[in-house]
């Protein structure tokens, strides 16, 4: 990836217009680094001097509009709504859909210090003995997010397919197009159909990718939940299942919730904060999201092989499919 041009001039001009600064007013923007969080999008760390909001910020830049899962403006709206309802999310201070300013749509949010890189994060958490605290904070954050009236969600994410039926259809389509027959996935799909829950009574804004790797933690606990590009209106239990997926534990398998703490702690905090926990749905979503990630890895291998995205990392994903298939089948018996 090429280095971004010095964002100073274009960004300064844009911020001046946003903040309606007089020509003589001082404003200086300096690029001080690039955050490692986020694989596809660039996170430029900026120091803004002058203007109404001096300080350190992050510009999250989507390189090209065609790979947006949720549009940047919609994601910014979801972030703001979540933040207003007490979910720890960095404050968004501006959204720009003009791709000419930074080479892609972007929004600017406050910089939150702390650790995001999973293994370093887990080391910090266990040195400080704050794993259970963070899991409690996650449970509370999920409850606050899921309490929001979905009417506040942007229209683009408000009318998805039925959460349960749509998720089943999506994995079925992928399984039908695998490069080689994988009976473990067929078995798991069969189980998912036979144990399919009803569509959720209450559809809520879900983040759909909260996990170790998408949170900021410091010695005081959970600071922020990042990367809201997968947000949608769906089944709240999907969020609670995904955060428990084995790969986000980074080897700390006895701590089901992201290598941080236990499901009991998550459930207790969620319920105490008003969330409606449903064991059956939780378990069903655990199997679904595990299998879905397995099919996603198979898809990455296919993208390498057909040339859409040739990369040794994508190729290696094919050798990880067995992990997800194994976990899905073990989960099916784990009740």
């Amino acid at each position: 990836m090429s280095d971004v041009a010095d964002p100073h001039d274009a960004l300064c001009t844009w911020l001046r217009a946003q903040w309606q600064l007089d020509p003589g007013e001082h404003l200086h923007v300096e690029l001080v680094g690039e955050s490692t969080a986020g694989a596809r999008r660039r996170n430029l760390v900026l120091e803004i001097a002058g203007g109404p909001r001096p300080g350190r910020y992050v510009a999250t830049v989507l390189p090209t509009a065609d790979i947006a899962i949720v549009g940047m403006a919609d994601e910014a709206t979801v972030r703001m709504v979540a933040r207003e309802h007490g979910v720890p999310v960095p404050e968004v201070i501006g959204v720009c859909t003009d791709e000419s300013v930074l080479g892609g749509q972007f929004f600017i949010s406050e910089f939150i210090g702390g650790e995001t890189i999973p293994r370093r994060l887990l080391r910090l958490v266990h040195e400080q003995g704050i794993g259970a605290k963070i899991v409690g904070q996650l449970g509370e954050s999920f409850a606050r997010l899921h309490a929001i009236d979905p009417a506040h969600a942007p229209a683009a994410i408000s009318a998805p397919p039925d959460p349960v039926g749509g998720a089943l259809d999506a994995v079925h389509t992928v399984i039908d197009n695998l490069l080689q027959p994988e009976p473990a996935f067929s078995y798991a799909l069969r189980w998912l159909r036979e144990h399919r829950p009803t569509e959720p009574e209450q559809r809520r804004i879900v983040h759909a990718d909260v996990r170790t790797g998408n949170i900021i933690v410091d010695h005081s606990g959970l600071r922020s939940i990042l990367d809201w590009e997968t947000a949608k209106v769906g089944d709240p239990m999907e969020d609670l299942a995904w955060v428990c997926t084995r790969m986000w534990r980074f080897g700390e398998d006895h701590l089901t919730v992201g290598g941080l703490g236990t499901v009991d702690t998550l459930r207790d905090a969620y319920v105490a904060a008003g969330g409606a926990w449903d064991d059956h749905r939780y378990h069903w979503w655990r199997v679904l999201v595990t299998m879905r990630w397995g099919t996603g890895l198979a898809g990455q291998a296919a993208m390498h092989l057909d040339g859409r995205f040739s990369s040794v990392v994508m190729a290696a994903s094919g050798r990880r499919v067995a992990e997800m298939a194994y976990d899905a089948l073990m989960l099916i018996d784990a009740r």
Partner: peptide
Amino acid sequence: AKPGYAAPTGAP
């Protein structure tokens, strides 16, 4: 592909 992954201690 990943020795040890299916060990009994590896809870799904």
